Simulated assay, not measured.
Amino acid sequence: MGATSSIAGKSSVHDFTVKDSRGKDVDLSVYKGKVLLIVNVASKCGLTNSNYTQLTELYRKYRDKGFEILAFPCNQFLNQEPGPVEETVQFVCERFSAEYPIFAKVKVNGKDSEPLFEYLKANAGGFMGSAIKWNFTKFLISKKGKVIRRIGSRTEPSTIEADIQKALEEP
C-alpha cells in the first residue's frame, strides 16, 4: 500500500481508522472538535524522558479544554521501541503517568508505513523532505482534523504550548 493509495480521498485525520494498543479499530472521527498532537514515540530514545514528561504535563493542562495526544510507538529508528506494545503502554503509564491513548506500533516511513502518517507527511513536509527523521516527531492537528504544523523531534513539547492554546481558541 503506497502513500498515494493510502491517502486518496482523505481530507482530514478524522477520515482514518487506526489500531489501538489492543488491536481494536479506532475511528479518528471520535476526535472531531478536539485539537490533537500526534506523535511517533519510543521508550529507549535519548529524547524519551523530556518528551514524555512534557507530553504528560501538556495533556493534564489542556485535556479538559479539548486537547488530546495520540501516541504511536515506532521501532524504525535504531531499534528504540523493540518490545511489544503492551510493554510500551506499561512503561509510559507507570513511569510518566500517561493518561492519553497509546496506539498500536506503526511504521512511519517506507512502503508499509501507517496511512495516517503518510497523510500527515503529505500535509506537512519536514525540513529535509517529507520522511520522518526520528522519534518524537509531532504533528499539531486542528479541531477540523487539518495539519497545523509539523514539529521536529528535537523541539520539546512545552515550546509549542502557545500553538496549542491558539488552536484550542479556534472555532
Rank of each mutant, 00 (worst) to 15 (best):
S43F: 04
K44R: 15
K44Q: 15
K44H: 15
K44P: 06
C45G: 03
C45W: 11
G46E: 13
L47S: 11
T48N: 04
T48Y: 03
T48D: 04
N49T: 14
S50T: 15
N51P: 10
N51V: 03
Y52M: 14
Q54M: 04
Q54I: 04
L55Q: 04
T56F: 04
E57W: 02
L58D: 02
Y59I: 10
Y59E: 06
R60P: 04
R60A: 07
R60N: 12
K61S: 00
Y62I: 06
Y62A: 06
K65P: 02
G66F: 05
G66S: 05
F67M: 07
F67Q: 06
F67P: 03
F67K: 06
E68G: 03
E68S: 07
E68W: 02
I69S: 03
I69P: 00
I69H: 00
L70P: 02
A71H: 05
F72S: 01
P73K: 01
C74F: 09
Q76T: 05
F77I: 06
F77Q: 11
F77D: 03
N79C: 15
N79M: 12
Q80R: 07
Q80T: 12
E81P: 02
E86D: 14
E86C: 08
E86L: 11
E87Y: 15
E87F: 15
V89I: 09
Q90D: 13
F91D: 08
F91E: 05
F91H: 03
F91L: 10
V92K: 07
V92I: 15
V92G: 15
C93F: 11
C93T: 14
E94R: 12
E94V: 12
E94G: 05
R95A: 14
R95W: 14
F96K: 12
F96R: 08
A98N: 09
A98K: 11
E99D: 09
E99W: 04
Y100I: 11
Y100M: 10
Y100F: 12
P101F: 07
I102R: 03
F103G: 08
K105V: 06
K105F: 09
K105H: 05
K105Q: 08
K105N: 05
V106A: 04
K107Y: 11
V108W: 03
V108P: 09
N109Q: 03
N109I: 06
G110K: 05
G110M: 10
K111R: 13
S113Y: 07
E114G: 07
E114I: 02
P115W: 02
P115I: 03
P115D: 01
E118W: 11
E118F: 12
Y119S: 00
Y119R: 00
Y119F: 09
L120M: 03
K121L: 00
A122F: 03
A122G: 11
N123S: 04
A124I: 05
G125L: 03
G126F: 01
F127L: 14
G129H: 09
G129L: 02
G129W: 08
S130W: 07
S130N: 12
S130Q: 13
A131L: 10
A131W: 12
A131I: 13
I132C: 02
K133I: 13
W134R: 02
F136N: 09
F136R: 11
F136L: 08
F136Q: 10
T137A: 01
T137C: 04
K138I: 05
K138E: 07
K138W: 10
K138Y: 10
F139I: 00
L140R: 01
L140Y: 00
I141Y: 07
I141E: 02
